[in-house]
């Protein structure tokens, strides 16, 4: 059991399929077609089209992360107080939808959100204003919140359900009301879960190209769409890699932020 050699297969695998592929992105991102060093691919982010896509991505993913947090925090509080919380029910509830294909699940929102679709008809019946959000950035935010909400709920729930009840009881004994207990005791203690939830929603939202393709009607380009097209439509791998390097800067930033607060408690598993 103590044998170091047990780790060798994994380390070889990790070197070949985790480290080396990332070096390829760095190589392509920092060279031009002739193989000479250049920063032009990184600078490509500054063109009007690319920077517009980046800022739109940043805006939409900030918004969807904020909505996820607002929806998930009360839910995590409710779940950790309920008897469901004790069983494997929660994991069950949030893992199960993943067995319905991700693309189909997201596409089903087209049927629900479409003009004259299910929700629109419901709104008309109730005499509410028309519900027209399909093919708009709002629909993309909707899809992001739907797809990534579980990644916000699980880490926050994990941290809150592990808070020592005695700490909360002590706060109540010392005269704190329930709002003060929440604000001064539970909230600070749940910070690692919040940070880990934020990274787990923000990064996939920032980099998605699927949700914008499905719910944005193909006209709204996020930075993920731009990169995907550079590769799959064969425009330029070098520019695509350069843009990916820029994107990785944001990923690394949020990783550093999360490792500062997260000491393992916020982990999903």
């Amino acid at each position: 059991m103590y044998r170091k050699s047990l780790s060798y297969p994994y380390l070889i695998w990790a070197a070949a399929f985790i480290i080396i592929p990332l070096l390829f992105i760095a190589y392509y991102g920092l060279t031009d077609k002739s193989g000479a060093f250049t920063l032009a691919n990184l600078a490509a982010i500054a063109t009007a089209e690319h920077s517009k896509a980046l800022f739109l991505s940043l805006g939409l993913s900030f918004l969807s992360t904020a909505i996820c947090l607002l929806l998930a925090y009360p839910l995590a509080l409710i779940l950790s107080n309920s008897r469901f919380g004790r069983s494997g029910f929660i994991i069950f509830l949030f893992i199960l939808p993943m067995w319905m294909n991700f693309l189909l699940r997201t596409l089903a929102w087209v049927v629900l959100l479409d003009t004259n679709g299910v929700l629109d008809s419901l709104f008309q019946m109730l005499g509410l204003p028309r519900f027209k959000i399909i093919n708009t950035p709002a629909a993309i935010v909707f899809g992001m919140v739907y797809d990534f909400l579980p990644f916000m709920i699980l880490p926050i729930y994990n941290v809150i359900s592990k808070i020592d009840v005695n700490v909360i009881n002590a706060a109540r004994d010392l005269g704190a009301n329930s709002f003060q207990t929440l604000y001064k005791v539970i909230f600070p203690l749940s910070l690692p879960g919040i940070i880990s939830g934020i990274t787990m929603v923000f990064i996939p939202s920032l980099t998605t190209f699927v949700i914008s393709t499905l719910l944005g009607g193909g006209k709204i380009l996020l930075i993920g769409n731009v990169i995907e097209q550079e590769f799959m439509k064969g425009t330029s791998w070098h520019v695509g890699s350069g843009l990916s390097l820029v994107l990785m800067l944001f990923i690394i930033l949020s990783m550093i932020l999360s490792s500062k607060y997260d000491h393992g408690e916020g982990n999903v598993l």
Binding site: P21, L22, F24, I25, I203, P204, L206, T207, T208, F209, G224, I227, E228, F231, G240, S241, S244, L247, M248, I251
Partner: peptide, 8 residues
């Protein structure tokens, strides 16, 4: 990000 892993 998945897209970065995929491209790599």
């Amino acid at each position: 990000a998945e897209i970065v892993t995929g491209i790599a």
